[in-house]
Design a protein around this nucleic acid. Structure first.
Length: 843
RNA sequence: GCCGAGGUGGCGGAAUUGGUAUACGCGCACGCCUUAAGAGCGUGUGGGUGAAAACUCGUGCGGGUUCGAGCCCCGCCCUCGGCACCA
């Protein structure tokens, strides 16, 4: 057997053979043992994949291959999220059209993905910018509109000056999250807290009031939240979604304003502290809309001036200025009906207009910000405590505002209650008195869908003066995105298509009169919100031909396939999509479920959030210049070596650091492994020790793979190989299972060994996963730890049965010279863990 | 500020969930092989004392529970991630 392993030749050979044999293309019409194994498809925005992609996709592939060897019919598709700002920005940078750019880059992505030896079904791929795909994206928009979940409305929205389009709230994030620095900063540490940037370009978005399309994702807030309890996701992603949805139960309390017929309504989650309220603050917007006419003439000028100054500030300035509290007294007093106290009403820009009612009741004894405000303007601080001996478990809450500075008052009403009980009691009381009404608020906002860009599916809506907004009839789909030369974003609140009457001039689907198409395109996250539904449908008549003129909703893809292949069995992807893609896809799936187009509410019952690869101590990114291209490593060491190395670097959900020396070490292991396989002895039978190691390795690898602990699975295989090397003769009974164990990690080498070395028929990848025998896990002898007073004094080897018996172990232990020395002339008792440990405890 | 995860050799990381801390690998050192290089092979590799045997200290810091703690409890410190003038 040749000891030399020519990876490039062998890997190419098997990749070709697998594809010819359609080894990874399951029969989509079967329903037995289906396993839909999905990795988040990449957006081809750069020139190719980097090692971070390879780390994630290999993790997914290893699991898929493992499941395939468990006799599952594994469907593992791949595609390209090719529409959207990310691709378009890259094209603009290269001075070419997105279409031309993608024709080149997707080919490169495909070449790279193939070279990694992933078991994708290449007969079913999707490209979101292809018309056969986006006609369905448009169809989806129409269904959502018809269901009443889409609306166009003028609203204050985020406008990115770099990308020249509006963005959804989810696409505005901290510079660290975006991995982008806002203009004018060189270092992340220099950027002040609270600065938020565009996810794509790092510019600071502006607030603009524009008319835009929204999806009512907020209607699904409660379901999106409660379903988190029934899906099996990485906990950190669930937490992120919970935080983003941000459900808060509180109460709107209405306080009459003294000597007027007006009142002010404040939202609070802590009404139990309301006895300690000493003032009310309203946002400048609230004051402008509700109070300017009520205040006396003496203060009106000051108030108006303050409001104007505040409104002139950018979001950014308000955040920064907010640290030192400013404000104006309105001269008005709100009456706290609980205790009759007069509370001065102030206006201050630390209160946000967009949350709650835009008015806040100030309880400086229990809130840091209220406390700061009260101190700034000399307003009394009052703390609420429960009765002297009551449960102090913390009605005066965690803020621990300087206790000594407050006047204490007793609240017999809430005596002895904890925060939760007191809150409920107070809400009940306020509602009974008619002073307040319970209110649930959310952090989640409706999904802003419109983009004033070119590279996306045109929103399939038509505006008619007479009939208002009308959806394009399904039978008229797709609304083709025309090839235009002036595709760059304009930044005037409309997209490039607005310059093309040949595109937008049309007739109203309802009255037939002259009408105008929507010229915005939809958010790229709409494209990716349903792609997992498309994959198994690729190639079906329904996918190809629909939506047709025949009828509306019935044509949605192939019902049988949707029913048998979905939902996705395992979704593998990055945690950075916690509140973007993963939230949107859940929403769209729920909406389709409600339309009875799907039979499940949750698209991804199992989601594993992988980590991110680190290089030189930082996240891999082009701007940092620390991107590792897998191509050169595949060329030099082969895909198997790279795959093994990526999986061995650390746990799948960790942040492993890529090192060249590490991959060289793995290359040595691969060479060693190949040598070991090639040198097996046909006639040899494994000894007890090797056999035991084999079976315990099978057990360990099987268990580790199930929980994505690929690094320790590989370590176990290495230990086995090390032991085999020590053994002077070993046979097929060891090598064949070993090849099976390594197959998910090193598919080419395993296949070559399986077929060419071991001479098996068929592929190792559809062979049966090695099984272990419980009986073989036990060795004839066991090492027992002997301790004296909890300190290890000896490790003794004892025949396995005796190792379970204290008497036998004690006898052997006392015979050990070192143990005997420590026990000399001492009284002791013993603690015995059968088969493991004996501890002599001196009295 | 609130919520979540974590802190183990020079480095990436293990640790049967309370029972030999540092598996596996990288790096490093020495040796074998080789004309040489590479590859390969072997030995060693937490600190301290010691020829050795062995002893002792050691998992961010300080306490505690236990025969026994990286793991459990209490109090801190730090790092990373999410939310955030969200009332």
């Amino acid at each position: 057997m040749s000891a030399k392993y020519d990876h490039s030749q062998i890997e190419k050979k098997w990749q070709k053979t697998w594809e010819e044999q359609k080894l990874y293309s399951p029969d989509i019409n079967t329903r037995d043992n289906k396993f839909y194994n999905l990795w988040m498809f990449p957006y081809p925005s750069g020139e190719g994949l980097h090692a971070g992609h390879a780390f994630a996709s290999t993790g997914s592939d290893v699991y898929g291959r493992f499941m395939r060897m468990q006799d599952m019919s594994v469907f593992q598709p791949i595609g390209y999220d090719s529409f959207g700002i990310h691709s378009e920005n890259f094209a603009i940078k290269n001075s070419e059209t997105p279409k031309v750019m993608l024709a080149r880059t997707t080919l490169n992505y495909e070449r790279q993905l193939r070279s990694l030896g992933h078991s994708y079904d290449w007969t079913r791929t999707v490209t979101t910018s292809n018309v056969d795909y986006y006609k369905w994206t448009q169809w989806l928009f129409i269904q959502i509109f018809k269901a009443g979940h889409a609306y166009k409305k003028k609203a204050w929205v985020n406008f990115c000056p770099g990308c020249k389009t509006v963005l959804a709230d989810e696409q505005i994030m901290s510079p660290a999250q975006a991995g982008k620095l806002p203009p004018g900063y060189d270092k992340l540490e220099d950027v002040p807290d609270g600065v938020r940037v565009c996810e794509r370009c790092g510019n600071i978005p502006e607030r603009r009031e524009l008319s835009q399309w929204f999806f009512k994702i907020t209607q699904y807030a409660d379901r999106l939240l409660s379903n988190l309890d029934i899906i099996n996701w990485s906990e950190r992603v669930k937490v992120a979604q919970r935080e983003w949805i941000g459900r808060k139960e509180g109460i709107n309390i209405t306080y009459p304003i003294e000597s007027t017929s007006s009142s002010v309504t404040c939202f609070t989650t802590r009404p139990d502290t309301n006895f300690g309220a000493t003032f009310v603050v309203v946002s400048p917007e609230y004051a402008r809309d509700n109070l300017v006419d009520v205040v006396s003439e003496e203060v009106q000028h000051n108030i108006t001036k303050y409001i104007e100054e505040s409104l002139a500030k950018t979001e950014q300035q308000r955040r920064e200025d907010g640290k030192t509290k400013t404000g104006e007294f309105t001269g008005l007093y709100a009456i706290n009906q609980l205790n009759g106290h007069k509370m001065p009403i102030w206006v201050s820009d630390f209160v946000l207009s967009g949350f709650g009612t835009g008015a806040v009741v100030g309880v400086p004894g229990h809130d840091k910000r209220d406390f700061d405000f009260a101190k700034t303007f000399d307003i009394p601080v009052v703390r609420v405590v429960v009765g002297a001996d009551g449960d102090k478990s913390d009605i005066h809450d965690a803020n621990q505002v300087q206790e000594e500075q407050g006047t204490m008052i007793n609240s017999e009403f809430l005596d002895g209650m904890d925060i939760n009980k007191a809150t409920v009691a107070m809400m009940d009381h306020l509602e009974q008195q008619g002073w307040g009404k319970r209110e649930t608020t959310y952090h989640l906002r409706d999904w802003l869908i419109s983009r004033q860009r070119y590279w996306g599916p045109p929103i399939p809506m038509v505006y008619c003066e007479k009939c208002d907004w009308q959806p394009v009839p399904e039978s008229d789909l797709p609304v083709i995105l025309p090839d235009i030369a002036d595709y760059k974003p304009k930044g005037e609140g409309s997209g490039p298509l607005a310059d093309h009457p040949e595109f937008y001039e049309t007739t109203c689907p309802k009255c037939g009169g002259a009408a105008k198409r929507e010229t915005d395109v939809s958010d790229t996250f709409l494209d990716s919100s349903w792609y997992f539904l498309a994959y198994p449908n690729v190639g079906t008549d329904e996918y190809k031909n629909g939506p047709s003129a025949s009828s509306g909703q019935d044509v949605f893809l192939n019902k049988q396939i949707l029913k048998s292949w979905l939902p996705v069995d395992l979704y593998f992807g990055g945690a950075e999509h916690s509140v973007l893609h993963l939230m949107y896809a859940r929403f769209v799936t729920m909406a389709l479920y409600d339309l009875k187009l799907l039979s499940f509410e949750e698209p991804f019952p199992n989601f594993f959030a992988h980590g991110l690869m680190i290089k030189d101590g930082a996240k891999m990114s082009k701007s940092r210049g620390n991107v590792v291209n897998p191509d050169e490593y595949i060329a030099k060491y082969g895909a198997d070596t790279l795959r093994l190395y990526l999986m061995f670097m650390g746990p799948m959900d960790g942040y492993p650091d890529f090192r060249d020396t590490g991959i060289e070490g793995m290359h040595k292991f691969v060479a060693r492994l190949w040598r070991v396989i090639g040198q097996y002895n046909k006639d040899a039978k494994a000894d007890e020790k090797t056999l035991q190691k084999l079976h315990s390795t099978i057990k360990k690898v099987t268990e580790d793979l199930k929980i994505y602990h690929n690094n320790t699975a590989i370590a176990a295989i290495m230990e086995l190989v090390n032991l085999i090397v020590e053994a002077n003769a070993y046979g097929r009974d060891i090598i064949e299972p070993l090849v099976g164990l390594i197959a998910p990690f090193a598919p080419h080498l395993a296949e070559e060994a399986w077929v060419s070395v071991l001479g098996n028929e068929g592929s190792v990848h559809t062979s049966v996963w090695p099984k272990y025998d419980e009986a073989k896990l036990v060795l004839s002898h066991k090492d027992i730890i002997v301790q004296v007073d909890g300190k290890m004094r000896a490790s003794i080897s004892i025949e396995s049965k005796s190792a379970e018996l204290e008497e036998e172990v004690a006898k052997a232990a006392k015979a050990d010279a070192n143990v005997a020395k420590w026990l000399e002339a001492k009284q002791y008792k013993t603690i015995f863990i059968p088969g493991r440990l004996l501890n002599f405890v001196t009295l």
